[in-house]
């Protein structure tokens, strides 16, 4: 069963094609990872799925529904949540408010209710607070920082708060853009544990972009490899690891004669 499917997605900026004819799918209840060298188009692909970019061609299906024409808020309401590569928390707000903000599409208080803050508005806020505390803050072990402004937190914790905010969106598909980039080993292990728990305990499908190969190979069920805006391989981690096209994309083709030729070409150019 596929939760997300991209069919022939094509995205270009002016003359530069960022994504060329991308087709792939994310199996339900899996951790699917998109890997690829820098500039391969991983983040562009994420931006197409969350609705920040509109691909020129192709369609994206979420649970069989074509979401290519939906605006980002409508996609969020369907259960697509994401985090960003370079942390997009709201710096002026506390950790708690950032997380609560994630639940925006699931709350209903209108303007008059908010002004009066009586009855339904108050009850909704309290229910939200309780949900956020029980399910998310406890789970991610961030109860000690809930009142702090996010700008004052160290990088690793900010990443964790961003994950918390995405979880507050009650996602069905959670998209993580480089969840462990720039973290130390201990933080990486914590994050890997959270991601596995999210899949197993919450039943949320995870789609992530990640560069850390040991983590990718350890926790992914399914790997998609991009290079120059094209899918060059996809499958189980072990299969992808052995795929010659992938090895070439990451390391070159390994042929000593080619390497020598490239080196000479570089020296001459210099």
């Amino acid at each position: 069963m596929k939760i997300l499917e991209a069919v022939n997605v094509h995205l270009s900026f002016g003359g530069v094609a960022a994504l060329r004819d991308i087709s792939f799918s994310v199996p339900e209840d899996s951790i699917t990872t998109v890997i690829g060298p820098n500039g391969a188009g991983k983040t562009s692909l994420f931006n197409c799925i969350s609705g920040f970019y509109r691909p020129q061609q192709g369609s994206i299906f979420f649970r069989g529904q074509d979401i290519s024409r939906l605006k980002p808020p409508a996609r969020a309401a369907l259960g697509l949540a994401r985090t960003f590569q370079n942390i997009a928390l709201f710096r002026g707000m506390t950790v708690l408010d950032n997380i609560k903000l994630g639940a925006h599409v699931h709350t209903k208080t209108g303007l008059l209710g908010a002004l009066a803050y009586l009855g339904p508005a108050r009850r909704e806020e309290m229910a939200l607070r309780e949900e956020v505390e029980r399910r998310i803050i406890d789970f991610l072990e961030i109860d000690h920082i809930r009142r702090q402004p996010v700008a004052s937190l160290p990088y690793g914790l900010q990443k964790r708060v961003e994950l918390a905010r995405a979880l507050a969106m009650r996602p069905q598909l959670l998209m993580l853009d480089e969840p462990v980039a720039g973290m130390n080993r201990e933080e990486k292990e914590d994050m890997a544990r959270f991601i596995l728990d999210i899949k197993e305990e919450w039943g949320v499908t995870v789609l992530m972009v990640e560069h850390d190969m040991s983590m990718v190979m350890d926790i992914s069920d399914h790997v998609v490899v991009l290079n120059f805006g094209q899918v060059i391989a996809s499958g189980l981690p072990q299969e992808v690891q052995k795929n010659p096209a992938v090895i070439e994309a990451y390391l070159g083709d390994g042929d000593i004669a080619t390497l020598r030729r490239r080196l000479n070409a570089n020296t001459e150019a210099a």
Binding site: L111, A114, A116, A121, E124
Partner: peptide, 9 residues
């Protein structure tokens, strides 16, 4: 009050 609710956030 507004800034205690979703609208203010």
């Amino acid at each position: 009050n507004i800034f205690r609710t979703r609208i203010g956030r």
